[in-house]
Design a protein around this nucleic acid. Structure first.
Length: 531
RNA sequence: GUCGCCGUAGUUCAAUGGAUAGAACAAGGGACUCCUAAGCCCUAGACGCAAGUUCGAUUCUUGCCGGUGGCACCA
């Protein structure tokens, strides 16, 4: 990895003065005129030394220019601006990186090899269809899992099903079906399962059966329509309530005197471990709370030996972060717990914002969104996946259906797919003519070709960066840049002629195609050969 | 009230303690008789407000304004 090599080189150059701070970065340059890679190490070091930034930066340059090893890697190392050090890769180095790429594209990276990671996402209540709010967590979790797997980790994708008969939602479903309530009218209307359900059963049993019908519909939608694979569908009812796990955990809490009774309920002393207040684990009517199940569920996940346990929750679960982290401390779970909050999607209609509410009926379901776009160009899932994946999780999205429909045809995903299809077309043409003698190094003499080559070699950097900072949307940014760099290359460099083709340029185009395909693949988006 | 998140171009979104804050769509203009024009090139356009920390703040801190979410013995 180039950025790692630069870091090591600069470390050598600065010796003990190297600032071990995370404000130091070694990254791909933001613009071409700043070289291929850049670091602010000189400026950061200067701050702690009290020296002028440019001087420290110059020291780095001087040192590295004398080093034969680094000289082979870079054709230019220079101080720029207020004290950045910019690196331009030698063509030899770029060519070498390109040679290594096919093995990476097919075999993945190895920076997470040996790690066991659990990613739990979507986990929608089995009380209705998935709406656009679920889309964020769904695609984020899926792509993140893809990337972790690609980086060598053993990933379990998990979905928690809130199907407890003790839950208020399940009871409410039963009530609605029986005509004793109307909270889930839409759900009941949509599935129409009355014939298979005995309405004289207890409401929680009716609700439970309906919930599983909803769950099975949602599962089919997730697997077939969204193209998301879940390894472990984890039923609260089967795994936690029916087993003795909840009881065992409760007994353990009591034995360790971590609970107390108040107002007839059993409370857990989470506030001692950083939570804002204590939480109820057994309600005064004797039923166990959702929180107790959540604890048992996490205990179960940690007991399975994951190095990282990742939860992807909606913004409405923000308040749960502290309490579960408190329990982690309380019970000393081994492993890293990462909780990501996806900001909610609000609706915009007639220029005004409104909250999605099943009650009011202004909910946009994912299936409807996909169908609307499919009606335009058949790439509905691709467009929707891109639409959600290109935004960072913290963005508060405002969703306007009319705008989404209008813009879907102009979704950047088609630009990327188009580049892929175009390259495929070139490859097809090249089959009919013979190769010339050129090599990638010859082709790289052209400015746009070199830019394409460098952009391709950034792929492993982008992926390994995401495994560290979880910023999945950087992959869409990269895929778009790659497509755009190819488009400029395509305008400048003729790959296939009448009698022969430029074999160096063709090789470059082939690598570009494979890298675009892999990027789209990790995003769960198709890479069509024709458009 | 309180805790959290967000406020960047007309719009939808990026980025960053430092180099001229990037794209896309919309707007305006242009090139090309050739590998897919869903393409390429150019122009115009933005850090909510105010203080503080810093050599340097859009980024960190505080306050304010605006938006949004949590604050149940619901999940």
């Amino acid at each position: 990895m180039v950025s790692r090599f630069i870091k090591e080189s600069v470390k050598k150059a600065l010796g003990e003065l190297f600032p071990e701070l995370n404000t130091v970065n070694f990254a791909v340059s933001p613009e071409r005129r700043f070289g291929d890679y850049t670091t602010n190490a000189g400026m950061v070091a200067a701050t702690s030394l009290g020296k002028p930034p440019k001087e420290t930066a110059q020291n780095i340059v001087d040192y590295l220019s004398k080093d034969e090893n680094t000289a082979r890697f870079f054709s230019k190392i220079e101080v720029a601006g207020p004290g950045f050090v910019n690196f331009t890769l030698s063509d030899e180095c770029v060519a070498k990186k390109l040679e290594e790429l096919p093995a990476i594209l097919s075999g993945g990276l190895d920076n997470l090899t040996g790690e066991k990671i659990n990613v739990e996402f979507i986990s929608a209540n089995p009380t209705g269809a998935l709406h656009i709010g679920h889309g964020r967590g769904a695609f984020y979790g899926d792509v993140l899992s893809n990337i972790f797997s690609f980086a060598g980790a053993a990933v379990t994708r998990e979905y928690y099903i809130n199907d407890s008969r003790e839950s208020k939602q399940i009871k409410e479903l039963g009530k609605t079906a029986k005509g004793e309530g109307n909270f889930y009218e839409n759900t009941i209307d949509n599935i129409r399962t009355y014939t298979e359900i005995n309405l004289s059963d207890a409401i929680e049993d009716i609700g439970f059966k309906i919930a599983w019908q909803v769950q099975s519909i949602n599962k089919g939608f997730i697997e077939k329509d969204l193209n998301i694979k879940i390894d472990n569908w984890y039923s609260e009812d089967k795994k936690l309530r029916s087993s003795l796990l909840n009881d065992r955990n409760l007994a353990a809490f009591k034995m360790k005197e971590l609970t107390y009774e108040k107002d007839g309920a059993v409370w857990l002393k989470t506030s001692v471990y950083g939570d804002d207040e204590d939480r109820v684990v057994v309600r005064s009517d004797g039923s166990k709370s959702y929180f107790l199940s959540d604890i048992s569920y996490h205990a179960d996940k940690f007991s399975r030996g994951y190095d990282r346990v990742i939860d992807i929750w909606g913004a409405d679960h923000h308040g749960h972060v502290k309490r579960i982290e408190a329990v982690k401390k309380m019970l000393g779970w081994k492993g890293e717990l990462k909780i990501f909050i996806t900001q909610l999607v609000s609706l915009k209609e007639n220029g005004a914002s409104s909250k999605m509410s099943k009650r009011v009926g202004n909910v946009i379901f994912l299936v409807n969104l996909i169908n609307e776009i499919n009606a335009i160009n058949k790439f509905g899932v691709d467009a929707v996946r891109w639409f959600f994946s290109e935004k960072s999780l913290g963005t508060h999205m405002e969703f306007d259906m009319a705008l989404a429909r209008e813009r879907s045809a102009k979704n950047p995903v088609f630009y990327v797919q188009y580049a892929h299809a175009r390259i495929n077309s070139i490859l097809e043409k090249a089959k009919n003519v013979s190769a010339d003698e050129s090599k990638i190094a010859d082709a790289m003499k052209d400015k746009e070709a070199r830019a394409l080559a460098v952009k391709i070699t950034e792929f492993p950097e982008v992926i390994s960066g995401i495994t560290e900072d979880y910023q999945v949307h950087k992959l869409t940014t990269y895929a778009y840049e790659l497509a755009s760099t190819f488009a400029r290359f395509y305008e400048e460099v003729r790959v296939v002629g009448e009698k022969d083709y430029n074999s160096g340029a063709l090789e470059l185009a082939t690598l570009a195609k494979e890298t675009i395909a892999k990027s789209l693949n990790l995003l769960g988006i198709s890479a069509p050969n024709k458009m």
